[in-house]
Design a protein around this nucleic acid. Structure first.
Length: 1141
RNA sequence: GGGCCAGUGGUGGAAUCGGUAUACACGAGGGACUUAAAAUCCCUUGGUCUUUGACCGUGCGGGUUCAAGUCCCGCCUGGCCCACCA
């Protein structure tokens, strides 16, 4: 027999596979049989494939091959993320066009991947830089724009001077550019944004639906950063202005003793004339701008300047409080301003200390009350009973509490007074406060009735007698045992033994009547008027109610997540499919909105009261007129009522309509200029509508009302923009036809199709309708137009100078703008920025389903069959970028009715980092880089694949070891040599057990991605076979089949040598025989006092009595018994006998 | 500063429910084959000692248990992530 020569057999089989097309995606896959396996989209860098890539593709391939063998219809795919900076930077250096660079590096990359022997359907290969692909990237942008999710805005952005481009927050690492490490500057620029923040709540909640690692879910949740609280406004003294703040602690409003604005806050500039110390303020603002993000992070010392001449009024107590600017308040979070509560916020406290601002305590933190999520052991810890009295143990971890005022500097007496005051204030008979400042910890204790106050410096117990408080050292304390985890039982036990112990809630009542001591761990409001005595949670609620009643503020959920900036001043990306005319007029926030209700509805029904309410404090006057005779509407009457609701000047007015009200709205626009027309589920005089409502409405009335009585051309001229909301399940409005009607008659129209909104009524949850509110307050851009889908793709031109100028290279392309003015009018130009490459990778998993489709990004049938992705393997570094964006795209498609699922990846895993042999990160700098293609050339792809999986758990970081590669090579050589011993007549009964056990283990482990242990088990089997003279063919074939996903070439070759002429990769996964897993004889371990002293070979079904008896007879056991009678003998079936002496 | 995860031989790593700690592989030592080397095969390989046995061993200190790498408490060390998010 020949030597094992991977160089010969691997190309042979790769060629055969390609020719026979056995890895083409099955045509007749169904929802149940399909298995979509997705390796992360790579960027084809010049340095080619690295071991981390190989790890991903191999792992996916093993999984794919396994799934195929267990009968799944597998879709395994590959593509390239071929837009992006490296190719462009290379172009700047060498003047080689990025397209050419990518062709070369991409082709090389693909060759390298193919040499690993992956079972990918190469017909579905895609590259994000091909026009056939980026046409749909552009289409996604238009979809976002149409739905009001893409907008253009001037904003300070992260700017890398070296790359001459804008960076997203996640591309900024420690204040530097993630690619070139240059310091990132802030620069004001017009940028395109995607409104991912509209989806923040769903991106958070829906994480419950996916099978991702806990860590990943948590990181994504943190990034989204949901927090609940209130938004409220502070009046500025002597002015109409208000300062809006967001807080998660509305309950501490009484303790807000000053306010802080971010230096960039808009109000600061507007107060220029009022601020007495403007020079100082301006100097601080300039200094802040110069400060990099990095400086701001490292230097946590608080700085700031008071705005002299400006005072705010605390709405809770009417006190005038100072207003400061400081860079610890971020312009980009919340409202860019805060109410500072120094007593209960670390940062505010540090600031107040530094600038000697007043500190007022409004929460007493007491030891105690059970929260549902608290760990009883931690809090109950330290309660003991001695002589029937309850003792409290003070432990460092009992609770963490910063003593208000940081009294440590002020001397003991003040602390004593403070704790006493706290006790006094809340009416408890005893109070315990833990102060934890720096490394010094004290417990302050005060007992009211006994007027006893003390400081405890370490773990002590306190005994409360009728007449005295006694400190007890630990030694004197008798501990009472109970199950720490059964809190209720513990409480019961304790209160039974001591009448002075009460469970927190009971206590709250009794404490006030003079009972012994309290045991509460919630904060309680003090010095807060109507909040006094309420716990923090209760006080939050009450304060929000109060704010809402008074019209000062409202409940608000705030997210850390920011809108996604997607434009790049770069060449090598997908052009943004928009045209811009800078000199067109634009709108600002509207002054008025007039809302027209539906047939049979009224101004107090559906979302109307909500809209009026929401707009109340925004500066937009919202009017919802009652339209006459709503059950029997007459067109003329409604029109007249609507006209009555208009102001004289209407060009800053937005008109909204719902259902029949929309037709009146359109009629209004015939003779009035409006900023925007928003039509919710509009009725239109089309056959499809008549037909759909025939049985539901009075048709003569409907036809008389909605007739061809509006001059749509005039409307088009008068209205800045028309936005139409439709729902797929609307019982009255036909979606397709209505959409077509508007798109045909109006130029500037956006149709937003929703799912599940019905007729946008209460029943479907549309009593509140954030998207509508959004549209009202977002002015139309007359200087921007979106392209038609038919005009896509906008092709990237070739006549481009790559040299960075800070302007997009496309600015200087003549061909790029040719024909644009002819088509859109004078002054219109194509947007010259390109899209962030993250947009390309946010939807690529859809394209693989139907990569050659030029009518849609993928066909509905393909989407239905194959999505969502069953298994996705990619780097952990993309958790807060790519993975989040992909989920966002998927949810938008879902809402628009393109797909019927809203999470793209069911199972997601991350491969671990592979280090160099020296345990350092692989890097040219260390000279420790392993090139997988070198490994393939020297040892073969099968060895490379199997070794990478054998190194350790897929998700762990692990170092490369060349010796280990050789070990795997030896293993495969042993398999090769085993084939010489294979004979048809060999008796395999002896090996049956081992073979079937291995089969079970390998099958289980492969299915759960524990490839390293699966390989180890196969090695054991091969070593055992090595000791045999002959191997039955059946056994050998089983081995080959289970090894096939890991080492497809060698197994294919040996399979052929056994005389088969089909491919091993299409064989079914061998089934193990349950009966062969159980041995007849087993080894029982015998322990004496927990130590292993003997073994015995016994029959597997030995009964307890026999086992115990024979164990005791063993000489080794006798020896340890030393003639004594065993106290206890324990038998664990199939495992051991344990003797206790 | 906050959060999460991990710590097992010389090395990478195994170890269902708590049930023989160190599977598998690397490395090392010894042997066989060979003129020699490579390759291959065989044996040994956690430590200590009074070595035909025993004791100690999964970062450290406690605890629960007949039995702990595994569960509980406290600490130490390392890694990753987040980092003024009101």
């Amino acid at each position: 027999m020949n030597k094992y020569n991977p160089k010969e057999i691997e190309p042979k089989w790769q060629k055969k596979w390609e020719e026979s097309g056995i890895y083409k995606t099955p045509e007749n896959a169904t929802k149940d049989s399909k298995m979509y396996i997705l390796p992360q989209l790579p960027y084809p860098s010049g340095s080619g494939l690295h071991v981390g890539h190989a790890e991903v593709y191999t792992a996916c391939d093993i999984y794919a091959r396994y799934q195929r063998m267990v009968g799944k219809d597998v879709l395994q795919v590959f593509g390239l993320d071929s837009f992006g900076l490296p190719a462009e930077n290379y172009a700047i250096k060498t003047n080689v066009h990025p397209a050419q660079t990518i062709d070369e590096t991409g082709a090389h990359f693909v060759e390298q991947v193919k040499s690993l022997g992956v079972s990918v359907d190469w017909d579905r290969f895609v590259r994000s830089s091909d026009p056939g692909y980026y046409k749909w990237t552009q289409w996604f942008f238009l979809l976002m724009y149409e739905r009001g999710l893409a907008y253009r805005k001037k904003q300070a952005v992260n700017w890398c001077e070296s790359c001459k481009t804008v960076l997203a927050n996640e591309q900024v690492v420690n204040g530097n550019c993630e690619r070139c490490d240059t310091q990132v500057l802030q620069k004001e620029m017009d940028q395109w944004y995607l409104r991912i923040t509209d989806y923040a709540d769903r991106l958070d909640y829906d994480l419950d639906k996916v099978d991702w690692s806990e860590e990943t879910v948590k990181r994504q949740r943190d990034w989204i950063g949901r927090s609940q609280g209130a938004q409220l406004s502070f009046d500025v003294a002597g002015s109409d202005e208000k300062i809006e703040v967001f807080t998660t602690r509305p309950d501490t409003l009484f303790g807000a003793t000053y306010m802080v604005l971010a230096p960039e806050h808009g109000l600061v500039q507007s107060w220029k004339d009022k601020i007495e110390n403007w020079d100082e303020v301006e100097a601080y603002i300039v200094a802040t701008q110069k400060k990099s993000e990095l400086d701001r992070q490292i230097d946590q010392e608080k700085t700031g300047v008071e705005l002299k001449g400006i005072k705010a009024i605390n709405p809770a107590n009417g006190k005038e409080i100072p207003v400061w600017i400081a860079d610890y308040v971020l312009a980009t979070y919340g409202t860019g301003a805060i109410m500072a509560v120094p007593a209960h916020d670390e940062r505010d406290f540090a600031f107040a200390k530094k600038f000697a601002l007043p500190i007022e305590h409004v929460v007493a933190e007491l030891v105690g009350e059970r929260k549902d999520d608290f760990h009883p052991r931690r809090s109950v810890r330290g309660i003991c009973i001695r002589d029937g009295k309850v003792l409290l143990e003070f432990d460092t971890k009992m609770q963490e509490y910063v003593l208000p005022g940081g009294g440590i500097e002020d001397g003991e007496d003040i602390k004593a007074a403070l704790v006493r005051e706290l006790a006094e204030e809340c009416g408890y008979s005893a109070v315990v406060v833990q102060e934890n400042l720096g490394s010094i910890e004290h417990n302050y204790f005060h007992h009211k009735r006994l007027n006893d106050w003390r400081v405890l410096e370490s773990a002590y117990y306190i005994e409360i007698d009728t007449n005295q408080v006694i400190e007890r050292p630990q030694e004197e304390v008798e501990k009472v045992e109970f199950d720490w985890y059964d809190f209720d039982e513990a409480i019961h036990l304790l209160s039974e033994k001591s009448p002075t112990f009460f469970r927190s809630k009971v206590f709250l009542e009794r404490a006030k009547t003079g009972q012994e001591f309290c045991y509460v761990d919630a904060g309680v409001a003090i010095h807060s008027d109507f909040l006094d005595g309420l716990t923090t949670e209760q006080a939050k609620e009450k304060m929000i109610q109060w704010l809402e009643e008074k019209g000062i503020g409202k409940r608000k959920t705030q997210y850390k997540l920011r809108d996604w900036s997607v434009s790049r001043q770069r060449f090598w990306g997908a052009p943004i499919p928009m045209v811009i005319a800078e000199d067109q007029k634009s709108f600002t926030l509207p002054t008025h909105t007039v809302n027209l209700h539906a047939w049979g509805s009224g101004s107090q029904a559906q979302y109307h009261p909500w809209i009026d309410n929401m707009l109340e404090n925004t500066g937009v006057v919202s009017v919802t007129p009652e339209l006459p005779d709503t059950e029997n509407p007459q067109f003329g009457d409604w029109l007249e009522a609507a006209i009555q609701a208009l102001t004289e000047e209407t060009s800053q007015t937005v008109v909204t309509g719902r259902s029949l009200g929309c037709w009146t709205a359109l009629k209004l626009a015939e003779d009035h200029e409006f900023q925007k027309l928003i039509l919710v589920a509009p009725t239109t005089p089309i056959d499809a509508w008549y037909k759909k409502v025939e049985d539901k409405l009075n048709m003569s009335l409907a036809k008389a009302f909605v007739a061809d009585n509006v001059d749509l051309k005039k409307v088009s001229k008068n209205v800045g923009e028309i936005v139409v909301f439709l729902s797929l399940d609307d019982p009255y409005i036909p979606v397709e036809e209505t959409k077509a009607y508007f798109e045909e008659h109006f130029d500037r129209v956006r149709v937003i199709v929703q799912r599940g909104a019905g007729h946008f009524d209460d029943e479907h949850g549309y009593a509140t309708f954030p998207a509508l509110l959004h549209e009202i307050v977002t002015p139309p851009y007359l200087n921007i137009r979106s392209l038609d889908v038919d005009d896509l793709p906008v092709i990237l031109p070739n006549d481009v100078d790559f040299k960075p100028t800070g302007q997009s290279p496309l600015t200087y392309s003549e061909s790029f703008q040719s024909g644009v003015e002819e088509k859109y009018g004078k002054g219109w130009k194509r947007e010259v920025d390109t899209l962030d490459t993250f947009m390309c990778s946010s939807w690529y998993f859809f394209r693989y389903l139907d990569p050659h489709n030029d009518k849609a990004f993928a066909s509905p049938e393909a989407l239905k069959t194959w999505m969502p992705v069953d298994f996705y393997l990619g780097g952990a570094e993309h958790v807060n970028g790519h993975l989040l964006y992909s989920r966002f795209f998927t949810k938008v498609l879902f809402d628009a009715g393109y797909i019927d699922f809203d999470e793209p990846f069911i199972t997601n895993r991350h491969q671990g980092l592979i280090l160099g042999e020296d345990n350092r990160k692989m890097s040219k700098r260390w000279g420790n880089v392993i090139n997988p293609t070198d490994v393939v050339n020297e040892y073969g792809a099968d060895t490379c694949r199997t070794y990478e999986m054998f190194m350790g758990p897929l998700e762990d970081t692990k170092p490369w070891n060349t010796g280990g590669v050789k070990g795997v090579q030896r293993f495969l050589e042993k398999v090769w040599k085993l084939s010489e011993k294979v004979s048809n007549g060999a008796d395999g009964s002896k090996m049956d057990g081992l073979v079937h056990k291995t089969l079970k283990k390998v099958g289980d482990d492969t299915a759960t991605l524990q490839f390293n242990t699966a390989i180890a088990k196969m090695m054991e089997l091969v070593n055992a076979f090595g000791k045999e003279d002959a191997i039955s063919q059946q056994h050998f074939e089983m081995l080959l089949k289970m090894l096939a996903p890991y080492a497809p070439h060698i197994t294919e070759e040996l399979w052929e040598q056994l005389g088969h002429n089909d491919s091993i990769t299409t064989q079914p996964w061998p089934v193990y025989d349950e009966s062969k897993l159980v041995d007849d004889m087993i080894t029982l371990v015998v322990q004496v006092n927990g130590k292993v002293r003997a073994n015995m070979e016994v029959s597997a079904d030995i009964d307890e009595e026999t086992a115990k008896a024979s164990a005791l007879e063993l000489p080794a056991v006798q020896k340890w018994l030393e003639g004594k009678e065993p106290k206890k003998v324990i038998f664990v079936k199939g495992k051991l006998v344990s003797v206790v002496v």
